[in-house]
Amino acid sequence: MMPAGLPFLFYAGAIGLLVIGISGIVLSRNLFRIILALALAEAGANLLLVLAGWHWGGSAPILGQGKALETMVDPVPQALVLTAIVIGVGIQALALALAVRAYRAYGTLDMRRLRNRMNRDIAAAAGIPAESSRDAPAGGRPTPPVPAAHRSGGGRA
């Protein structure tokens, strides 16, 4: 009944998508590609969930079409995947909005440049040399200067 090798192919497809997506997330340097890879990983995870409820010779869980109840696939994973897809759309939209915002602020989507520029900005705001690592012990750092908005708020302390 079970064709040999076919289950391996199904699982390999779903797990392959998931792993390709995760590899893309950890290997890409471009923020937009990371978001695309996230969508790919999500598709793989959804496929894996649907596969978990599927059985050989299964039919869609819809009544009134002359199909026996015993042949229908488990409806619970399908409902779960429906949920997962919708939440995935929300996550992707929010991630894209954050990417747009990062591009607007720093003019690049490249992770390394983004990190360098962010570190430079943070260092400039904190009044420390830009080369110092953010993991360095904080003891030697000078206290950050008081922002101008607070300094000119009248003569009080």
Binding site: M2, F10, A52, H55, W56, V73, D74, P75, P77
Partner: peptide
Amino acid sequence: FGHPPVLAGGAI
């Protein structure tokens, strides 16, 4: 594979 332990799904 292909023979999932249908518990809640079967009852539903």
